[in-house]
Design a protein around this nucleic acid. Structure first.
Lengths: 234, 234
DNA sequence: TCTCTCAATATTGTCCTACAATCGTCCTAC
DNA sequence: GTAGGACGATTGTAGGACAATATTGAGAGA
């Protein structure tokens, strides 16, 4: 069995089940790889060899290379000349830096959201955040979804497309994939409470409070994530 | 003469003078196109047809497509399926949105810079910003360089690599907005004064003041840029 | 004359093959 | 044990081919 075949088996079994329609090949590959990375099926540091991917997805090198480029642009993988692509491993410093940026962006989003005056968007926001008011305890996976939906709802209400784009590139999902196992029930419950506090400020049109509470929420999240990274190093 | 040949002539003359070394083809193309766009030789809305570029740079479609993808990631061009790439034209809304983000990012950088405690980096900052203390009046071109150097020096002192990356992406499109011709002596002089004020706060290790002054500086810059766009539309 | 449909054309999306260039590694010679 | 070279694995680029889609313009119909 060839090297490539062995690596392929090691990653995700025989091959892609359903080939995509014409014009969607690249998007298809990107989606699959993104899922694999964020779900942890592809660990940080895993190599992504073009020939493996061509056989796994049954496509030519063109789309594979393009998919790798997009994932690089998204920051999910790293690409070195003549050495290929590997799943990105965020360093403690990178996580710290990304959180600093994210805090500012989300605080801005919260401020804009609180100041938004479009009826329909406010209604959409209210509808989208309903899950945060559920009383049932969440498991980590459910919380991650709820969390993503909440932050996305704030972004949507803020109505700044560039900000939304940029926030998506800040790798919160990747960070969570790498330190996600720190979500104890206590941490998780605190986060839900913080979401509610932010939401209340936004609903009250209180920009300053919304911004400050979002900032506090993310500062705590950053502390949790960084503590986890420090633990792992030890 | 073919369509492609006509378009090629229209853009930059016969062909690339010096082909790049192996492994640098894409970077070469990206550089050339970036320059053309930022220098205005390629106007917003100009189409970038793959076959034109292959003949202009005497390379195959692979590197061309990759270069276009990178420029897309940088926000310099727009890419639509089956319709190709065009030089990005920023709408007023996009400029407004990007400035909102940039204000937060630069304010964060100023805050971090003021709080930085590494001797060498502070020394480097002082050296890098000397031009802002020159008394001689600047022409717009000189100012733009001085401005870029100043903001980059703040970023360097802030020592957040992710932030620096992001700021570069946020700046490029603004240059494309071609606000060069609104830089009257008055506007220009005000900007220099503001730079000095920011620098002073940073040198004083006053994070709050640094952040606030940077914010004020960029809010004024945003107003100038948006006024320019509004004028052009009229 | 205007609008709509449809074919011709231009262009992109993908595949394929081939080869050059480079990196990492192992292997040898000193 | 280290420097240097040979080799394999992999990426970078070329070039040709065809499929799929968008655009355009001409002709038919109202």
């Amino acid at each position: 069995m060839s090297n490539a075949a062995i690596r392929q088996r090691a990653i995700t079994g025989p091959r892609a089940p359903v080939p995509p329609a014409h014009g969607a090949t690249v998007a298809f590959i990107v989606e699959r790889l993104r899922d694999d990375i964020l779900a942890g099926r592809l660990q940080p540091g895993s190599r992504l060899v073009e020939s493996d991917l061509t056989s796994r997805f049954a496509v030519s090198r063109g789309p594979v290379r393009e998919a790798l480029r997009r994932l690089t642009a998204d920051g999910l993988i790293e690409h070195w000349p003549h050495r290929g692509a590997v799943v990105r491993r965020l360093t403690e410093r990178e996580i710290r830096e990304l959180f600093l940026i994210r805090i500012e962006m989300e605080a801005l989003a919260a401020r804009l959201a609180a100041a938004a005056d479009a009826f329909e968007r406010r209604a959409g926001f209210v509808a989208a955040i309903q899950p945060i008011y559920a009383d049932a305890p969440r498991n980590p996976c459910e919380y991650l979804k709820e969390n993503a939906a909440f932050h996305d709802a704030v972004m949507a209400l803020a109505d700044n497309l560039q900000l939304r784009d940029l926030a998506a590139r800040l790798q919160l999902p990747l960070i969570m994939a790498q330190v996600g196992d720190v979500l104890t029930p206590a941490v998780l419950n605190a986060s839900v409470q913080e979401h509610r506090a932010v939401a209340q400020a936004i609903l009250d049109c209180n920009s300053e409070a919304a911004s400050a509470r979002m900032r506090a929420h993310l500062e705590r999240a950053a502390a949790v994530a960084l503590r986890r990274v420090a633990e792992r190093k030890a």
